[in-house]
Design a protein around this nucleic acid. Structure first.
Length: 105
DNA sequence: GATTTGACTCGCT
DNA sequence: CAGCGAGCCAAAT
């Protein structure tokens, strides 16, 4: 497995500022793995439970929480955390125009 | 060592 | 404008 790539992904996620979110694809590109969008989610899944990483700031390209229905608890936690940071969630979706992280800003 | 699967994305229908 | 399918890459079985 790519420990290096995994850490880079976590690194990028840790760079997301308070009150902002980023998409999987975005993270993948910033971490140097443009086409490893799926891998990003995979990494989070394994590291989220025992890491202090703000995994909940990561959403999919549809601006929605990507967890499955079975992970309702996780969805709830993520949404709660986001709102606690001031991110407004409308109809389960996030306003990317306002809250998506712009690495160059 | 080959096949399936996945917290995704983009493009065409 | 919504839905479906193909593409990509690493991990798990």
């Amino acid at each position: 497995m790519n420990e290096l790539l995994r850490q880079e992904i976590l690194q990028v996620i840790s760079l997301i500022p308070y009150g902002k979110v980023a998409t999987y694809g975005q993270i993948a590109r910033l971490s140097g793995a443009a086409r490893h969008s799926r891998y990003v989610g995979f990494v989070l899944k394994n590291l989220a439970s025992d890491s202090n990483i703000a995994w909940y700031r990561v959403i999919n390209a549809q601006a929605k929480i990507s967890l499955k229905k079975e992970d309702a608890q996780g969805q709830n936690i993520q949404m709660a955390k986001l709102q606690a940071e001031g991110v407004v969630v409308v109809s389960g979706k996030i306003n990317l125009k306002v809250f998506q992280w712009q690495p160059d800003e």
